[in-house]
Nucleic acid binder design. Structure first.
Lengths: 156, 156
DNA sequence: TCATATTGGACTAAAATAGTCCTATATTCG
DNA sequence: CGAATATAGGACTATTTTAGTCCAATATGA
């Protein structure tokens, strides 16, 4: 859980590589060599990144890929959206709220809300942050709002 | 991504049901009826919950399952650990740090750290919270530590 | 026109997930 | 004791997802 797929991992690597090239074009071949992932897989991912708008592609000889925006403006949430599909911690949270489990579904809604706040927080992490990760990311406060006041001084 | 499996969803439902029974024993059959999930699946999950220590089982006639602790003392992180296996956002984050991707792996390490802080935050959400979900969970601040000071007043 | 690249999609293989079933063991009650 | 009720443990199958490969078409530059 909270596991990203291998392709997403690869995809991130590729994005970081493109970021390091600072806007210069990079062919699928170049990328594959640099990140040491099989060419067909890299091609597949680059196509996905380009069609989703995270990368820009140029066809033909001397063509290649580059980021469509500076890495500071690409969020981890976006990257996950593209490479893993929409972030949704449970299935029915996608089509908000209709499963066959009726009453008990209040639980699903809790997972949904947790998922939602996680997503929101991932929007504040940029590709640039992934490129040069800080020593640590701060501990998240997922505590339900109604209890929050009781434990504000928690992290010593 | 950030998707939990269907079995985890079911498992949570079952735990919430047990919580609502307030310590009284509940057979697999009772649970299956209550949560409306196929009996064999419920049996499988209850066995898992019992063997992992989240639930307590009593064999024989009049036997059944109950929570091993009050719902306030069971965290979402534990539930996920049991039902989904160890939380690890990338593969190599499990066996901390050896993949064939060498230098580029600093990225993986970033995902790892994000995953880690998410997990820590899930430790502060209890089964009781899942049972009666609050209106919303607060937005998480995942901003890297070195930028945190610049945006403390972010949530207006 | 040829070499270099991306595009779009089909296709196969491998692995994880979901779901079912069977036999053994423990407990209660008549 | 013996029948009924439950869990325990594990094998097993089917389904779905994920990973990975390949090919024919199109675009570009020299």
């Amino acid at each position: 859980m909270l596991r990203i797929s291998r392709l997403t991992d690869y995809g991130t690597l590729i994005l970081v590589h493109l970021a390091s090239r600072n806007g210069r074009l990079c062919s699928a071949n170049d990328v594959a060599t640099a990140v040491r992932i099989a060419l067909p897989t890299v091609q597949k991912l680059l196509k996905l990144l380009a069609s989703s708008g995270l990368a820009h592609s140029t066809r033909g000889a001397e063509g290649g890929y580059c980021l469509s925006r500076p890495p500071e403006l690409i969020s981890a949430a976006e990257i996950l959206d593209v490479l893993e599909g929409p972030v949704a911690i449970t299935e029915c949270s996608i089509e908000d709220g209709h499963c066959h489990l009726e009453a008990s579904c209040s639980v699903g809604s809790a997972w949904q809300r947790i998922s939602k706040s996680m997503r929101t927080s991932l929007e504040n992490v940029s590709l640039a942050d992934l490129e040069n990760p800080p020593a640590s990311f701060p501990v998240i406060d997922l505590t339900p709002a109604h209890r929050a006041s009781q434990r504000t001084s928690q992290r010593s």
